[in-house]
Amino acid sequence: KAGHTNVVDSIQAQGLQKLRDLLEEKTDGQATIEIFPNGQIGDEAQLVEGVILGTVDMAQVSNSTLSNFVQDLRVLDMPFLFSDIPSLSVALDGPAKELMQQSAQGSGFELIGSYSSGIRHLMTKKDINTIDDLANLKIRTMQQPMHVEAFRAYGANPTPMAYSELYGALQSGVVDGAEGATSDYNAQKFYEVADHFSLVGWLNLTSQIVMKQSKFDALPEDVQVALLEAGTESATWQRQYVVEQEEPLLQELADKGISVVKPDTSGFRAASKPLYDGFIETDSQRVLFEALTN
């Protein structure tokens, strides 16, 4: 029984479905996963709590939710860590993979796979070519202190508000822009009210599939192996899938007359560096950070 909060055809859900298909294939249908999408059986925090309490077998949640329980993983959510999804993919499959599994196990989780949640850009009412163009703009962010802090560091006026209110807020000018993934920008028709899209790629987010470690250990040996293999393979497939999704989408936006620009991110990178020291609080976070970036 696996729960997630995304809609059925989202990029994250595709990863979980691939995991299920691969698992069935590898175990000749002996083991399978019953998927409950759309937050049907709980929101993200509830899903992780459910994994701990044993009310959910497996959960696919954003890395930021999981890092409330596994502190080390907070490192993955820092801005401008990876310039694109292929480099994220390389980092996740490198030596960091073992470290992340160790951290997860330290909190009683088994990490099955790390998927891409897309890369986040800027939607605004004017072009953002350098960090200076962002000065004093009201930018909607998620209600996360790190996001608010980052945009303050970039010179903007960060305005946290509920996602469901964003369209209206852009339309009425309550905010001048927002950060978000290309797929959301397109699907929610934000381009109607903010027709400039700047590919800053400030966050390169991951979504994690976890089980309770004791529950995982109780599975038959061959299913454990199949599950971990399926996790790795489905994650590799899914990250590539995300990359392939992105290109035609950007073309489609350009065809609609949206101004899509590739800005100079050096200013953003420089402004992000001092933030890292604030986020990295423990030695094990430092170790994971080094493993991801080297």
Partner: peptide
């Protein structure tokens, strides 16, 4: 496990 009830009540 019945702790799902408390979880849902809170949620």
């Amino acid at each position: 496990p019945l702790s799902i009830v408390a979880q849902r009540i809170y949620g």
